[in-house]
Design a protein around this nucleic acid. Sequence first.
DNA 1: GTCCCCCTTGTCAGTGACTGACATTGGGAT
DNA 2: ATCCCAATGTCAGTCACTGACAAGGGGGAC
Lengths: 181, 181
Amino acid sequence: MAATARTRLQQAAVDLFGERGFDSTTAAEIAARAGVTERTFFRHFADKREVLFDGQAVLLEALLTGIETGARDAPPLDILFHAFRSVCPLLEANRPFSEPRQAVISATPSLQERELAKMAALAEALAQALRTRGIPEDRARLAARIGMAVLADVTLAWLSETGPSLRDRLDRAEQDLKALI
Amino acid sequence: MAATARTRLQQAAVDLFGERGFDSTTAAEIAARAGVTERTFFRHFADKREVLFDGQAVLLEALLTGIETGARDAPPLDILFHAFRSVCPLLEANRPFSEPRQAVISATPSLQERELAKMAALAEALAQALRTRGIPEDRARLAARIGMAVLADVTLAWLSETGPSLRDRLDRAEQDLKALI
DNA sequence: GTCCCCCTTGTCAGTGACTGACATTGGGAT
DNA sequence: ATCCCAATGTCAGTCACTGACAAGGGGGAC
C-alpha cells in the first residue's frame, strides 16, 4: 500500500468535505487526517479548492486524441461530439469517484467557480485542437465553447439523476442542438 | 458631490488595481483611499473581488426586457440575439468604465473565475426568461449558455481590440453560429 | 426643541488560507 | 561510506474575512 501523501490528502479531503462541508473543513484538518502537515498540503495543491480538481489532465488527453481520430473534414461540432462519445467509457468508469465529488461541488459556490474556470480552460484547449485541424480561429473557439457547455450540462444531469446513459444523453443533446437552429 | 462610500470604494479599487495589480492591493489600502475602514469595505462587498462586479444587475434587467419584447414565437437563439442587440447602447455607454475594469480582470486569474461565475448566473437567468416564454427547459438552458458564450466572446473582443462596433460584431457572430450547424 | 430610532461606520479580537525561509531526514546513486 | 536531492517539518508572518459591541448623526414623532 503506502499511498503517496498526495493521494492520501485527496482522499482525506473528499471524506471530510462530505462529512462537514467544504467551508467547515480546514486545510490543517485535512493534512492531519492524511498524516502530514498543513504546509505539505499547500505544497501539493495550490489552494484548498484545487485538491478536488486533479483529474482534468487525463480527461483533456482523452479528448484531444478523440479529436485527432475524428473524420478528416467534418464540421467542428461533429468532431467534438465524436470526441465526447470517445471519452464516455472513461467518465463512466470514474463515476464512483465523480459522484461524491460533484455533490460537494454542487453544495459549495466557491467550488463551482473553480469548476467553471477549469471548464473554460478545457474549452480553450479544445479550441486549440480544432485550430490545428484547420478550423479558423473564431469558429473553433465558438464551437469549443458550445461543445463544453453541452458536455457540462449533460454530465451534470447524468451524475445527479438516474436515467439514460451518458452516451444516450449526448446523442439527445446533439439532436436538441441541431433543432435549435 | 459627496459620493457614497460604496461608490468611492469602487473607484478606489479600480484605480489601485490598475496601478499595482489586484494581488498587490490590500482591502485596507482600498478602504483607506476611500476614506473608510477595512471593515466598511467588507460590509459593502462580500469579498475583495466583488467590488468589481456591480453592474451585472442593470445588464440583467435590460436583457430580460429585451427578451420580453422579442417576436412571439421566434426560435430561442433569435430571441436572445434580439435581446443582445437591445443592450448594445447600454454597453457602448459603459465602455469607459468597462475597459479598465476588463484590463484588470484579464490580468488576474481569480477575477476571471469570478467573471465566469457571474456569466453562468446570467445565463441561468436568461434560461429562466426563455422558459417563461414557452421554451422547454432543456432547450432554454442550452440556448442560454450558447448565447452567453457568444456574448462574452464578442464583448471581450470588442473591449480589447479596436474595430467593428459591438452591434456589427454581434451580427457577424450570429452568422458564424448559423454556419456552424 | 427634544427624544428616539435606525442606519452607517468605527473598533477590536479572532480564525483560517497561504507564503517564505530555513532545518531535517531518508533513501539512491556513486 | 558519502553525497545528494526530494519531500517534509517548523516557524513566523501577511492578509482576507467575520462577529460583537460601541459611537455618531440625521430624520421623524411628539
